[in-house]
Amino acid sequence: MTSIVRVGLIGCGNIGARAHAPAYAHIPSAQLVAVCDVNTTRAHAVARATGATPYFDYHEVLARDDIDAVDICLPTYLHAAVSVEALRQGKHVLCEKPMAVTLEEADAMITAAREANRVLMIGHVRRFDPRYTTVKHALVQGEIGHLVHVRRAERQHLPFPGDAWYWHPHAGGGIFLDIGVHVTDLFHWYFATEPETIFALGRQIRPEAQAARSFDHAVLLITFPDGRIAQAEISWAYPPHFGRSQYALLELIGTQGRLVYSDRDAAPMLVYDSNDGLDLPTYFRFMSALEEAFVAEIAHFIAVVRGEAELLITPEDARTALALAIAAETSAREQRPVSWQEVAP
């Protein structure tokens, strides 16, 4: 395909409206032609901002023959059903992470993509973030030798109310799924091999998590062959205002050296304000990913659809990230290490 890829955005919530929709203006080979949300106000707002046509029922977007691909930014529990339907309608699919809530759903998505012979890409945006691609490049170049240990943290005060789908175990999957897949995919990407065991502890700290009976704080320890270790803390239970310049941390140990990144490194200025006190201003609209990362992610999807590139993250990779996140939650709930074999395809 060499023509412009015509895209319908399904889901105009936080990530759809703020991260994905504006990205298309920076991708000449794609055109956002339709935007859809059951919330008509949101759909209209994004339509106005992008010049796309608003829809309130995604079936109407899928029914449009002039749409080549859909960009699914729905709550996690809707990912599989809408992706499968879209693939069966012959659309290429870019779907936000986490891939799905269950592995059965993820496998159905992979099968649907194969049967329809369409591109299925899960939006693991860290893989397109210049911070994390720079780290990957350094690893591939052998700058710190052979990777033996990764410590990762993604932590904040989740600003969404208790009825938001993020908190709910079967809708967003809580911290283990929503943030868990980010860290497990990063581990899998960096170690570039299959894991062996998963151990995790989970906590329900905030009232929102307790009410939803989902976890909002967790530590993970995932081992890879030769005893190599990945450790993570993921949390929505940090105090209000935490996050921003302190959100992410990444520390790597290799046989020849160490590599350390923290979001403090991306917030290189201190500001004292007579009203607000001390702050480290950040330079990105989003706390956890650069806007450029979303543009790169979507541009890559478009390139794959156009036959110009191979998927940098396959649906099987995304399934692995999900399987590890689910295994971590199983470990936390059942208080035992979980073998990769239990969740491997």
């Binding site: 033996v148 240990h149 502890l201 530590v219 320890l221 270790i229 803390e233 140990i253 160490r258």
Partner: peptide
């Protein structure tokens, strides 16, 4: 190098990563 997760009797979570891993250039 060792990495440990400990759950204390009162529910507090502890983790430790420790070892002789700093390179000469640290």
């Amino acid at each position: 190098l060792g990495t440990l997760v400990v759950e204390f009797a009162n529910g507090v979570i502890g983790t430790l990563s420790a070892g002789w891993v700093n390179p000469q250039g640290f």
